[in-house]
Structures are given as C-alpha cells and as structure tokens.
Amino acid sequence: MACRSPMPPQEHPMSRRLKWFIAFDLIVIGILLIVYFAPLGEQRPAISTAGDALLGQELLHSAGCIACHSQEGGPAMAGGPRLDTPFGDFYAPNISSSLSHGIGAWSLVEFEAALRQGVSPAGLPYYPAFPFASYRSLTDADVVHLYQALLATEPVDQASEPHRLAFPFNIRLGLKPWRWLFATTRSLEIDQGSELGRGRYLVDAVGHCGECHNPRNSLGAFIPPYLGGNSLIPGGVGAPPIHGAALLARDWTADDISYFLADGLLPDGDVVGGSMVEVIEMGTSHLNQTDRDAIAAYLLSLVPRGR
C-alpha cells in the first residue's frame, strides 16, 4: 500500500492576520516618518535688495497686515481678532518689532520663509488661514519693504493669542500632506509691466483676494472657478464672485470697481458692509488711483477658470 505524503502545515488564521496587521503598522509608521522629516517650502536665493520702510508702510495696508494683525482700539500689529472658521478659531499673531513676542529678533531669511513659504522660524508649518499661498508671489523688493516696515513699528511685548482648533485640525503634522495635495510655494512670477499684470499682482499676491472670494472644498483648499465666490468666510458671511463674468452680469464698470475700492460705495449708491469695510478702510483706500484702476481692469478681464 502506497504511503501518502504528509500534508504541509496550515498557517493559523490568527497568524496571518497578525502579519497583515504588522505590515500595515509598518507602512503607517513609514508614511508618518516621511511626513515628519520632509522639508517644507523650497530653497530660494537669498534676497540682496535693500528695503524701504515707507514703501513697506503702504504695503502693510494694501496687503492686509494692519487689518488682520491689529485689534480695533488696540496697539498696531500686536495680534488680530478672532477668525471663526469651520476648523476652529484662528488668531493672527503679534508681528510688531517686539524682540520677545513679535518679529524683532527674526532675520530676513526667517521672515521670507514665514511670508512666502508658510514656515515659522522654528520650522513649523503655518495654517493656511495665513495667506502664504498668495504671498508666495510677492517680489523680493516687497518682502524687504515689509520687513523694514515691521521692524520700524512700535514694539508691543504682548503674547499672541493661541489658536483654538478642534481635533484633528490642532495637529500641525497634518498640514504637511495638506500642502502636498493642495498648496504650492512656487511663485507665479507675475510680470507687472502692463496694467493687467500690475492688477494681477495686486489681486493675486498683495491683496490675496482669492483667500476670501475663492470657493473651497471641505478641507479648505481652493477649487475652481478662481474668484468664483465663497458661501462662508470667517464671520459667517459670504464673499461674492468677483471675476469679470460675474461683475459684468451685475453691470459693474471699471470706474465702479475703482471707486468702490476707494470708498466702499456700491454702484446703486449703497455702502458695503461686513469684512469688506475693514479691507477698504485699512487696505484698498490707501492704494493710488492707478493701482485701483489696474485691479479693476484685471478683474474685468477674468473669465471663470482654475488658479
């Protein structure tokens, strides 16, 4: 009688599940390590141009720095009011010249990394409530002008209000994969040699209009169409579409836009409300007529598109 070959030993189902569990854990750990040690931002050439604090003072208005980083009735640049968002409450920090609580001890390299790369001097990523995704296209000259203007401010030795965010948005590590998926720090390299180019620079970079007027997905990332309106911005109000097609549909002319940016007066004679009051009073009203006209020309030239 022929002998049968012995059956190979069967792997226990529990052992098989344990191997898959260990493999999954190792993959997760590997991804977390990659995320943790991956560099933020990009290496840019050192800025060699000189700055002008007076030009920087104008930019502090037009770039929204004063409006965001100052409380009404409080010292300038000592920290801004609460920004209520679906992810929690954000507070713009103290950016006065204070050595202990502001940016007085920052180098130009650190300031550039914060402004255009969204990276703190400690190497931590900033939340996109800070519009580095727009400021990434600021010129070297404007970066230094802003730096000199902030160093010339009155120092305010006052601690910044910490953000109050819900889990998991309070975990900064999650900002790295968010940035890989939705943000870039590469400059748009905007040519300001024409009226449309100047307008684009003021809208897309300095004024960061898309931060409020651009629609976003559930994770807070920009989605098309650019400047297509946002139904919910900090404060619980909406920002209308302001691309050319939408403005023309509402019978806005270039003069209407330019006058609106100067005094907040709507074409029908009413006065704007909400957060645009602050944007105009502390920001666009400080622009010269040529720049306001350039913004109007650029906005009217836009058709709905992605960024």
Rank of each mutant, 00 (worst) to 15 (best):
L173R: 11
W180R: 09
R198C: 10
G220C: 01
A141M: 09
L151W: 11
N170Q: 11
A152T: 15
L227D: 00
L188T: 08
Y147S: 05
F182L: 09
L232P: 15
L151D: 04
H163D: 15
S194H: 05
R198S: 13
V144D: 01
L202T: 02
T184Y: 05
V156H: 08
A166K: 13
P225M: 05
E189F: 15
A159M: 11
L146W: 01
A159D: 13
E154R: 13
E189C: 10
L175T: 03
Y201T: 14
I171V: 14
Y147D: 05
I190E: 11
L146H: 00
S160F: 09
G220N: 02
F182I: 10
W178Q: 07
T184K: 07
Y135W: 06
V237P: 06
P162C: 06
G235R: 00
A141H: 15
P162A: 08
A183N: 10
A183H: 10
V143N: 02
L138Y: 03
F182C: 13
C212K: 00
T185E: 10
P177T: 07
V144P: 00
H213Y: 01
R186C: 14
N230Y: 02
S231L: 11
G238H: 04
C212G: 05
V156I: 08
T139C: 04
V203L: 03
H145L: 06
L146Q: 02
Q192K: 10
V237I: 12
G220L: 01
N214S: 12
I190D: 08
A239C: 05
E189R: 15
N230S: 08
R136H: 13
G197S: 05
C212W: 00
T184M: 06
L173K: 12
V156M: 11
F167M: 14
P168S: 05
R216S: 08
V144K: 00
D157C: 09
G236T: 01
V144W: 03
H213F: 00
F167L: 12
R198A: 14
Y226I: 08
S187D: 11
L175G: 02
P155I: 03
Y201D: 15
A149I: 05
L165D: 07
T185D: 12
H213E: 01
A159P: 13
R186T: 13
S160K: 04
E154Q: 13
G193I: 04
G236L: 03
S160Q: 07
A152N: 10
R198T: 09
D142R: 11
V156L: 08
P215Q: 11
T184A: 14
I233K: 00
A239W: 00
R164D: 15
L173T: 15
P177Q: 09
I190M: 09
